[in-house]
Amino acid sequence: MKAQYLKFFKKLFILLAVMFIVDRGLGSIIEYYFQNEPLGDAASFAHAINDPQEEVLIYGASRAVHTYDTKVITDSLGLSAYNCGRNGSNIIYGSAILPGALEGTHEHKLIILDLSAKEIAWRQDKAGEDILAGMMLPYVLTNKNFEKLGLELFPNEIYKARASKLYAYNSLILSIFRNYSRSDNDNINGYQPLIGSKLTQDPPDFSDRDKIDTFGRGRLEYFVKAVTDKKIPIVAILSPMYSQPFKDNESLKVTKEILAKYNVPFWNYASDPKYVKREMFYDLAHLNTTGADMFTSEICNRIKQEGLLNK
C-alpha cells in the first residue's frame, strides 16, 4: 500500500515539475509575442501606457476603437492622434492606462473619452466582470496599475495568473496569431475600421442595465479629475447607437453629474437620426467606416467650433 502511495506522489511530482517548466517556458514565449504585437488591442495597450506622444488621445471601449478615425482627426485638426480604446473594456481599463499618458513627457492637447450608455453599470453584469478580468489579466504580471486594480477587483484571478503564466494568457493565442497576420489597414494608430454592415433589421429598443457599479463610478471620476487637474481639454462623447431613441438611464444621469462637476462637456449622439441607419453601422453597437468617417469629421468640426483646443 505504502509503495502505491509513494509511486503516485512521485509521478505526480514529476508531472507538476514538467508542467511548471512548460507553463513558464511556453507562457514566456506567448508573453513575448503578446507584448510585441504589431497591431490590435495589445499593441494599442503597449502604445498607450508607454508615454504616447500624440496630441489627441482617444479613450473608450470597442465603440471608441471602431469609431474615431485617427487619420481624419489628423487631417481635420492638424494634430497627431492615437486611439487608445480597447475592445471589450470600460472606464476601469481606461483609468488604468491613463497614467501612461499623463505621467509621460509629452503635452497632450485633447482627450476624447467615448462612453457607453451603460458605462458605469457595465461591471454589474457577470459577463462584464468576466470580460474585464480576462482582459486585464495579461497585464497584471507586468503593469503595476493593473496589478493594483486587479487585486482590488478580482484577487483570486491574480493569484491564479501568478501560479500559471498560461492561465494569464488564456483565450489570447488566436488573437495573437490574428494580429501578426493582419494588414496595416486594419489598424490606423489604434483605430480599427469595420467595413460593410451586418444589419438586416430596424433599430431595436435600447435594453437597459441600470444598476450603478460604484467602483466604475469612482474610476470615471478619477479619470475626469486626473485629466482636468493636468489642464488637458477633455470631451466626453456618447457616440451613435443603432437603437431606438431612449431616455437617460441611471448610468447616464450619474455620468452626466460627474462630468458637470468637472465642467467637462458631454456630447450625446446616441440617437442622432443622421447616423441611426443601417448603412452607417457595422453591427448594433459599432459604426462602419462610412459612419465612423462622417462622425469623426463632425466631432472634429465641433471641437473647432467650440474652441475646445484653445481652453
Binding site: 507553463d23 511556453l26 468576466d130 491564479k160 500559471s164 498560461l166 488564456n170 483565450s171
Partner: peptide, 11 residues
C-alpha cells in the same frame, strides 16, 4: 493541461 489553461473558460 496546456490546452485547459490556454483555451478553457474559467468563469
Amino acid at each position: 493541461i496546456t490546452i485547459l489553461l490556454m483555451v478553457g473558460v474559467f468563469n
